Amino acid sequence: MKKRSICAVSGVTACGMKEGKFGLALIRASGTAAGVFTENLVKAAPIQLMRSQIRKGRLDAVIVNSGCANAYTGQKGYEDAVVMTGYAGSALGVEPDRVGVASTGVIGRYLDLPLIRRQCMEIAPGLASSVQAETLAANAIMTTDLYPKHALVEKETFTVAGITKGSGMIAPNMGTMLAFIYTDAEIGAKPLKEALKLATRRSFNRVVVDGDTSTNDIALCTATGESGKVRDAEFSAALEECCRMLAKQIAADGEGATKLLEVRVTGAAKEEYAAKVARTVIESPLVKTAVYGEDPNWGRVVAAAGRAGVKFDPNAVSLWISDGKNRYPLVRSGEIIADLKKAKEAMNSKTVIFILDLAAGKEEATAWGCDLTERYVEINGRYTT
């Protein structure tokens, strides 16, 4: 079903096109801006450019290409990223240094700039605030994604919305995921940056598909301010909700995935401890394959939690499994009470949830991932061929 999200935000227009593996999207929106980026030491050229460019705290547009990551391409790659901002700036009538740029695709290949320039000129006249235009933009940025990803959070006085792509090379600290988020709230550069960092930490940085952190991860947020001022705390909560919705879609669309895996950790001494345990469980190949096989081998969850580097009493933990509707106890305060038949029934769902109480405090965190299937190997074993 086609969805409208970013184009529901006042002041945002978009469009895109896809030709085989090579797509291009343009998004036009002027306002205060902030960004977060991959923590991989090998950073793609557009990431290097944007880490500098975003310091100005404002964007007027974004240009995104798929099919070529423009990563590990040296000085030429950096110069090509600059050229892309010039293409968008010329086509949209904005200054190039106020154009965000992102790329996704194969690492170690140079951009086809003539193709990008032609696509840019063809797309620019079609920018619109419509379901069709947004769908074209969201489809244009996909690589191995099976479907475009949209999120919309509507509050009484403002809206936050976003589109994203991401399916493989997804791990904490972001993965080959691109996210473009917009709001019509009026908010300053500093609180916008703080809100985006917090939202990212609690959403995109808690998604694991395969444990690889990409060279190209980027999340940009632009505030057009057309709906007026809002309280920082209210905006931060809405932004986090939007990012969480996008993150769950990325996890569910993991390469070769058949199930969404969610791990909720409660009873931790600190939120960061809960997050660390949740991520460790989510990224465990043993847990992921058990979920794929619908094998109620829940001991793998406890074992993974135990190697997370977080202190807790294993004899005090409680564990449940859920399909999103029904919840069944597996361990209560260290005592095994598992009904394996019911646990297997829960694993027959498209969503499998483990709730783990560490009984060590009051903090909690949730992480998202997917099962690990033969299809993942097929996709990545022939990614460039």
Rank of each mutant, 00 (worst) to 15 (best):
R55D: 13
R55L: 15
S52K: 12
T32L: 08
V42P: 05
L41Q: 13
I54W: 04
A33N: 05
T38M: 07
G23K: 02
K43Y: 00
M50R: 02
G35P: 01
L24C: 09
A44R: 00
A33V: 07
F22Q: 14
P46Y: 06
V36H: 00
G31D: 01
F22R: 14
G20N: 12
A33P: 04
L26Q: 05
L49W: 04
E39G: 14
L24N: 01
A25I: 06
L26R: 01
N40M: 04
A34M: 01
K43L: 03
K21V: 10
V36Q: 00
F22D: 11
R28W: 09
A44W: 01
G20H: 08
M50N: 02
A44K: 05
L24Y: 04
L26K: 01
G35N: 02
V36A: 01
E19R: 15
A29Y: 02
A44D: 04
Q48T: 11
V42S: 12
P46H: 09
L26M: 10
M50G: 03
P46T: 07
T38C: 09
L26S: 09
V36K: 00
A25W: 00
G31W: 02
A34C: 05
N40T: 07
I54P: 06
I27Y: 03
P46V: 07
L41N: 15
F37D: 00
A33W: 00
I47R: 03
I47K: 03
P46C: 08
A29R: 01
G31H: 07
N40E: 08
I27K: 04
G31Y: 01
L41T: 14
A34W: 00
Q48W: 09
R51V: 11
L41M: 13
T38P: 06
L49E: 07
S30M: 08
E19V: 15
A33E: 01
L24S: 04
V42L: 12
G23F: 02
G35Q: 02
T38N: 03
T32A: 10
K43A: 11
K43R: 14
R51I: 09
Q48K: 15
I27S: 04
V42R: 12
L41E: 12
L49I: 10
K21L: 13
E19N: 14
E39I: 06
K18P: 08
A25S: 13
R28C: 10
S52C: 11
K18Y: 09
M17D: 15
A29S: 08
G20Y: 04
R28I: 11
F22P: 10
A45Y: 02
L24K: 03
A44C: 06
V42Y: 09
R28A: 14
V36G: 00
I27P: 02
F37L: 05
I47V: 15
A44S: 10
A29E: 03
Q53W: 12
I54K: 05
V36F: 01
K18W: 08
L26G: 06
